[in-house]
Amino acid sequence: PWQGRSIASSKLHMLEFSAFLEQPQDPETFNKHLFVHIGQSNPTFSDPYLEAVDIRQIYDKFPEKKGGLKELFEKGPPNAFFLVKFWADLSANLQDDSSFFYGVSSQYESSENMIITSSTKVCSFGKQVVEKVETEYARFENGRYVFRIHRSPLCEYMINFIHKLKHLPEKYMMNSVLENFTILQVVTNRDTLETLLCIAYVFEVSTSEHGAQHHIYRLVKD
């Protein structure tokens, strides 16, 4: 049931995604603040399919040259492409403190045993500014293969970006900066180079009292 209702292709299903800040309170406890979060969902066949977005509406927000979003989509498979609109929670009190940990964790599952590569490109005005590439091996758990990218440290560029964003006095100013800030994550099978998931992330600042929010869309080309 998750196909078409969550971030899942026929080969790989994203279970969870979060970018967070851990602030130690005392030697034994810490506060965890989630900037963005996609939690575990258990869709059923009665749930509606994700809404679709025409991928051409967002091409220019992501790298357009060789290996860009257009080329990736043309290569397919089309059911591996998603757009996530995040409303990020920037309500945390950020101080420059080396004991703070900024991280990203994500989890995936598959019925296939494989080695995955996750490329995460941060883009400004559609141009890549930094890229992180991670390789994960599968663990067989409860009848399926699980991949965990656990507490991957956020890069210096992103930490500075969050701090600068936080310093802007008004939310509309933050949203104006975020209009030209995007992230493209591409998960591939390391050995076959097949695209397993391609997720385009776009952002606004949350105005909710309930923290980070998101909408997920299927990317299509009619």
Binding site: E51, V53, D54, Q57, I58, D60, K61, K85, W87, F125, G126, E179, N180, V202, E204, S206, T207, S208, H210, Q213, H214, H215, Y217
Partner: peptide, 24 residues
């Protein structure tokens, strides 16, 4: 070289794209 981009508000996107969910 920054290209002049069409603002997101002027693109064909679902209405939900601009509606922050209010989930607890």
């Amino acid at each position: 070289s920054k290209q002049e981009q069409v603002p997101m508000r002027k693109r064909q996107l679902p209405a939900s794209f601009w509606e922050e969910p209010r989930l607890a």
